[in-house]
C-alpha cells in the first residue's frame, strides 16, 4: 500500500515515474520502430520518429534469407523440451521435499541451489569435449539436456515454495478418502498448484529461451536457436539495421509477452523464495 498522496505530489510522481519508465523501455520501442523502416530511413540523420514510410519488407527478407522459422522452431523445441523434462523430474521431487521432508531436505535443497551457481565457464571444456565424444554437439537432445539440468534447481525450488503453501491436511483428506499416491498428486495436488506450475513453466521457458552461453557454444546450425540467429548479425550483416531490428523483434516478442504475464511470480522464482 502506498502512502496516500496529495494531488500535486501524485502528479509529480506520476510524471517522474513515467519519464523514467519510458526511458528504460525506449530501446525496445526504438528497435520495434526501426524494424518497420527501410534501411535508408534506419540510417537517416536526424533520426526519424514515426514520420517515415512504414514497411514490413524487412520481416519477409529476414525470413527468406536466414530462415527465421527454423531457428524459432529450435528455440521452441529446446525451451519446451527442457521445461517438460524439468516438470517430469521436478514435480515429484518438489512433492517429496514439501510433503515428505526428512531432516536432510533442507541440505538437499541448498545443495541443489549451489549446483546452479557453478559458472558455465568452469565446465565449458569438459561439456564441449564430452559432447563431441557423445555425438551430442549441435543436437536438440544435447541442448535440451543441458538446459534442463541447468534450470532444474530453479524449477524444484519454485515448485517447492508453491507446494509448501498447500496445506498438508488437504492431501491427508484425500488419503483418507481412499486416493492412491498417484491420484493424490493428479486429482488434488496438481489442480491446486496450477498457478504455481504455470509460472514455473513460464519462468523456465523464458530462461531457456534466452540462455546464451551453451546455445552459442554448443550449436552451429542444426540445433541453433534464436540466440545464435541474432548473434550471426554481429558480423557485417549487422550493418543492415532495419533487418537486424526485425529479426530481433521476432526473437524477443514471444518471450516479452510471456514475461509480462509472469512478472509477479518471477520474483519468487529468481530469488529462490527469499523475496515474496
Amino acid at each position: 500500500m502506498a502512502r496516500r498522496a496529495t494531488f500535486s505530489r501524485r502528479v509529480t510522481m506520476t510524471a517522474i515515474t513515467w519519464v523514467l519508465a519510458f526511458a528504460i523501455f525506449f530501446p525496445i520501442l526504438w528497435m520495434i520502430q526501426t524494424s518497420f523502416k527501410s534501411e535508408l530511413d534506419a540510417f537517416a540523420l536526424p533520426p526519424k520518429f514515426f514520420n517515415f514510410h512504414w514497411t514490413t519488407e524487412n520481416y519477409s527478407v529476414v525470413q527468406d534469407r536466414s530462415d527465421y522459422f527454423r531457428f524459432a522452431l529450435n528455440s521452441i523445441i529446446l525451451s519446451g523440451g527442457a521445461t517438460l523434462l524439468g516438470l517430469l523430474v521436478g514435480i515429484p521431487a518438489a512433492w517429496s521435499m514439501a510433503f515428505a521432508p526428512t531432516k536432510n531436505t533442507k541440505q538437499v535443497l541448498l545443495w541443489m541451489l549451489s549446483t546452479k551457481m557453478m559458472p558455465a565457464t568452469g565446465v565449458l571444456i569438459p561439456i564441449y569435449v564430452l559432447y563431441q565424444w557423445l555425438g551430442w554437439f549441435d543436437t536438440h537432445i544435447g541442448l535440451i539436456i543441458i538446459l534442463f539440468l541447468g534450470n532444474l534447481p530453479i524449477m524444484i525450488w519454485m515448485l517447492y515454495t508453491y507446494f509448501k503453501e498447500i496445506p498438508g491436511e488437504i492431501l491427508e483428506a484425500a488419503r483418507m478418502d481412499g486416493a492412491t499416491r498417484w491420484k493424490e498428486i493428479v486429482y488434488v495436488l496438481a489442480p491446486m498448484a496450477v498457478p504455481g506450475i504455470a509460472s514455473t513453466v513460464l519462468l523456465n521457458v523464458i530462461l531457456s529461451w534466452n540462455e546464451a552461453f551453451w546455445t552459442l557454444n554448443l550449436t552451429t546450425t542444426t540445433a541453433a536457436p534464436l540466440t545464435a540467429f541474432i548473434a550471426s548479425y554481429s558480423s557485417p550483416e549487422g550493418l543492415f539495421w532495419a533487418k537486424l531490428s526485425a529479426a530481433s523483434t521476432l526473437a524477443v516478442a514471444p518471450i516479452l509477452i510471456l514475461g509480462w504475464f509472469s512478472q509477479k511470480q518471477l520474483v519468487r522464482g529468481l530469488t529462490f523464495g527469499a523475496v515474496k
Partner: peptide, 28 residues
Amino acid sequence: PAKRGLSMVFQSYALYPHMSVRSNIAFG
C-alpha cells in the same frame, strides 16, 4: 488410511478448493 474405513474432519476442514461442494463430497 483408506483401508481402515474411517472418515476424518480436519481442523482446517481440508476441503478441495478446486472442486465444487458436490465434488468434494463425492470424491471419496
